[in-house]
Amino acid sequence: MASVPALKPTNTLVHQLGLAVVEMTVAVGDLALFGGQVVRLILTGLPRRGVMTQTFYEIGVRSIPVVGVTGLFIGMVLAIQAYDQFHFLHMETKLGAAINASLVRELGPTLAAVMLAGRVGSAMAAELGTMRVTEQIDALKALGANPVQYLVVPRFLACFLLIPLLTAIADTIGILGGWVIGSQVLGIDSFYWWLHSKEFIAIYDVQCGLTKSFFFGGAIALISCYQGFHCGAGAEGVGQASTRSFVWSFIAILVLDFFLGVFQSGLYYVLWPDPISLF
């Protein structure tokens, strides 16, 4: 782990800013080294099947209700809120296309990832932080286990592989939620709802959303496990690690979303140069 030089700057804004930048750079470097270690350990060997199964169950299966509820309400809220604008333009039947496109490409992956950063990320940081504080991580080392391999690798793989699946579930339930409100409450014809959705949403849109969620899953796992492994002493340290893991995961999701969005849009115009239109 890299270390911050023992700086004692004069207490001016410039010095404080400089120190913050140095600390941030060191933290990013540490996180990158941590990520490199995790990838190296994945390539050299996985933990026992029982450990992996348990972690996959905790992170994947037990998150289904949370992402399901998230997706459902996003779809329903979008339908309620966007209906008036589409109605004003006499384009109600295109509402489904707009809702489904925004769900699969942007809102589904991003909001599902944020929910999982809260449910899974904070729990991982708190669990590993408690293990650090109570010397359980040292005990793993003492018993011949590599703590990163035993604790982080299964969590990283579970987040990396299962968050895209959870995102797909959130997307599907969100699409159904939007359709139920659109067709049953707002009276939009289901035939045109799905027809325009099919016309407007390409496989590329679904791929973009799911590709993003791989990155979100990896970022949530790395940030949360890193915070847990480097948590301060006592209950306060564990609490701070848990909070930091959510805040930094949230920021990472937004930053990744922006850059991946830019990249994917650019890639789209390289692959399909003709512009697309809703009309």
Binding site: T134, E135, Q136, A139, K141, A142, G144
Partner: peptide, 19 residues
């Protein structure tokens, strides 16, 4: 080092059992 570490046993102050 890993091989030789297995020749050590460590009793932690708090026992550090995996809860």
């Amino acid at each position: 080092i890993h091989r030789d570490r297995l020749k050590f046993g460590y009793l932690f102050q708090s026992a550090a059992l995996f809860d």
